[in-house]
């Protein structure tokens, strides 16, 4: 792969491959390296505990935060248990439950986004995948506590966005974030799934593209060759960016925070002609 020396001039498709690299740090790797303490909390209080989306209280740089993140797993058994990071409605409802609790105690929320997408299964539909994502978008837009989002790997469509509405959206250099997977888009618009590299290019899904489109605020640099080469260095950069974002949002009045967040969301793709 071209990523040995530098990741500066990679194609969108090469970034997709890096974002999906199984050795890339995932939620639990980041938490272990970024937080000095993590107490996981389980369940949506309705149906189940979704292993694909984890959450709990953590301490980052001496501050209390609530962390939420897609959980992919490191090996086949873990992948299966975590459903490859594809959350069910139960996962999004757990995320909202925990974030509501954080809001009550004015604890900021930090989310780690890394999912191919929301789980496309029959039980997910039966329990309202669409409703859970919709509710999550509305919920996070109104949450009266700071929300910092880090897109760490795959930002797969609505399943990613459901925990990616926040005051500050950070994106790792080799992460991707898209309305549809390049394969899916190629299958539809090129009628040929193998045209995924072309679709990846056309969809503009890299951190650089998203920053210039105004969909993310900041790019977090990765170590040479990509985050999979050096978890500690990648986590260090992520931690620094999270702390800076938390600093910026600290002490902002809750009403003001929500008003600013609305203005931010409102500006996405603002019409100007």
């Amino acid at each position: 792969m071209a990523s040995e020396k530098t990741t500066k001039n990679l194609s969108a498709w090469e970034r997709v491959k890096l974002a999906r690299d199984p050795n890339r740090p995932h939620f639990r790797d980041f938490i272990a390296l970024v937080a000095s303490d993590f107490e996981e909390l389980h369940g949506d209080r309705l149906v189940s505990d979704d292993k694909a989306l984890a959450g709990g209280f953590a301490t980052i740089d001496g501050r209390k935060v609530l962390v939420l993140g897609h959980n992919k797993g490191k090996n086949v058994e873990e992948n299966m248990a975590a459903n490859f990071g594809m959350a069910n409605p139960d996962g999004y409802r757990k995320a909202m439950r925990l974030a509501k609790l954080a809001e009550r105690f004015s604890i900021p929320v930090v989310t780690f986004v890394d999912t191919p997408g929301a789980y496309p299964g029959d039980t997910a539909e039966a329990r309202g995948q669409a409703e859970a994502i919709a509710k999550s978008l509305e919920f996070f837009s109104l949450l009266k506590t700071p929300v910092v989002v880090v897109i760490t790997g795959e930002g797969g469509s609505g399943g990613a966005l459901a925990i990616a509405v926040g005051d500050k959206v950070l994106m790792m250099e080799n992460a991707v974030y898209s309305v549809i997977s390049p394969e899916g888009c190629a299958g539809i618009l090129w009628r040929d799934g193998s045209k995924a590299p072309e679709a990846a290019e056309a969809l503009k899904i890299t951190a650089q593209d998203l920053k210039s489109l105004g969909a993310v605020d900041e790019i977090v640099k990765e170590p040479a060759g990509g985050a999979q080469k050096n978890h500690a260095a990648a986590a260090k950069a992520v931690k620094k960016a999270i702390i800076a974002a938390l600093d910026e949002l600290e002490g902002v009045d809750a009403e003001e925070l929500v008003a600013r967040r609305y203005e931010k969301i409102r500006s996405y793709g603002r019409f100007s002609k």
Binding site: A134, S141, G158, L161, V179, L203, L210, L213, A215, G269
Partner: peptide, 23 residues
């Protein structure tokens, strides 16, 4: 669903419309 020809900004309309309805 979302209009993929408008890429990430079409995805962001899900957030925008939901936030506006929340208000």
């Amino acid at each position: 669903g979302a209009r993929m020809h408008e890429g990430i900004l079409s995805l962001m309309q899900m957030a925008k419309t939901s936030a506006a309805i929340g208000r």
